[in-house]
Design a protein around this nucleic acid. Structure first.
Lengths: 221, 221
DNA sequence: TTCTTATTTACGGATTTCCGTAAATAAGAA
DNA sequence: TTCTTATTTACGGAAATCCGTAAATAAGAA
């Protein structure tokens, strides 16, 4: 039974809405944090006091401001809280709509639910919290749809390295050196070409520019 | 005196927060719309009934869904409502943080206030509405700061066309033909090169890949 | 070990882009 | 008009990428 909830969200307005939703569900013990570090601290404190949270509702992107932070993103926060309280349920509430990012949240971070900030998001929050309360994962139909069309080419560490280097303006020779330095193989310019060609082939892309645009749009890099 | 307010916002959660803020200000006559077309209709109807709105609070981006819409963005909505009720005050509430866009809202659309969805946005909404109630424009210190450092390169129709074509995998020759077909000048491959070099120069980019990544990330294309 | 197979690297020519310069064209002023 | 200036286009060599093939290396099986 979810009784105590922590909201990690930098947008005050979004936080207010989530609080109101919790009120509707009769959840009175809700705390909120505008910074990831504060959220992590709250989780740790509550745990020490034997009064731990049952659910963390968090955004993904937190904006930097004058206050320097150790934890600067929702993903990092989730990883951090999992270390101190592995059984804490996590519901992500974010505007993110890139399937690669959402898939990664479920698969790598093992979140319990995802609600996208969009039309009807408040109603969806209600549903999601109820699902999680019943120990079910929640993911809207729309989001499932989104994740399916995730033309799944697995971008390997190598692929990501190559593409990232291209995005920072490096040419093939420089990328080859970079790969050698970082012990990523294969690393020859020839292999880089091969790899790029292969990826472009699977997507039916004809230029690097096309590939880069896709990767950025999809949040792969 | 602001008594009647219309909220145009597709995110239910954001809309709820704005409504709550209005309640705090003692504004009880508030309506909300999840679609621009609905918002425009409300303004028209209220005007016909001699019970017009005093303030429109609107988001900028509205997501497309199954319901086809004529007006699909906050900017378009503002232009449309200004035609039917020019004296309606407009407060934009959006996550947009590109200075060029915000400047344009004040200069071209003559909005009365801008509040960015960020930390403390609810408190800012209060301030903004009070300012507007006193016939003052509102723009937060942070936003003014943002608009000043408007070092952003203005991407022209030509730039966007070139970059879009590159993203769809075209090479310079093909882009040149495309530009000629669509009567965009200059259109020679030489000019395309020049333009790309110029843009890359202003950003200190060394490859097209870098430029493409930037444009996609920034939502320029 | 040796043989087989798969992966990685090297190489060379075709294509494309890059970059500087020069020619052609357009625009504006006298 | 003519002269001046700015913009656009054309061109050519250098650099980088693309693409196919062949050589070298690594991995696995007998």
């Amino acid at each position: 039974m979810i009784k105590k909830v922590l909201i990690a969200e930098d947008h005050e307005s979004a936080s207010i809405s989530v609080q109101k939703t919790l009120e509707q569900l009769g959840i009175v013990q809700s705390e909120y944090a505008y910074y990831c570090d504060d959220a992590l601290l709250s989780v740790e404190k509550a745990l020490q006091n034997g009064d731990s949270y049952d659910l963390l509702i968090t955004d993904l992107s937190f904006e930097k401001d004058h206050r320097p932070q150790k934890t600067t993103s929702g993903s990092a926060l989730i990883i951090a809280v999992r270390k101190v309280q592995p059984d804490l349920k996590v519901l992500v509430f974010s505007a993110e709509n890139r399937s690669a990012v959402i898939v990664q949240l479920f698969e790598n971070l093992g979140i319990d639910g995802y609600v996208r900030k969009a039309r009807g998001d408040a109603k969806e929050l209600l549903k999601a919290i109820n699902h999680i309360d019943n120990n079910q994962r929640y993911c809207s139909q729309e989001t499932i749809q989104l994740m399916k069309q995730s033309k799944s080419h697995d971008f390997s560490e190598l692929d990501i390295a190559i593409i990232s280097q291209m995005i920072s303006g490096k040419k093939q020779k420089e990328i080859s050196s970079y790969l050698k330095e970082h012990n990523i193989f294969p690393s020859s310019t020839s292999s880089i070409e091969k790899r790029l060609n292969y990826i472009k082939g699977t997507f039916d892309f004809s230029s690097n520019e096309q590939l880069i645009a896709y990767c950025v749009k999809m949040g792969i890099v």
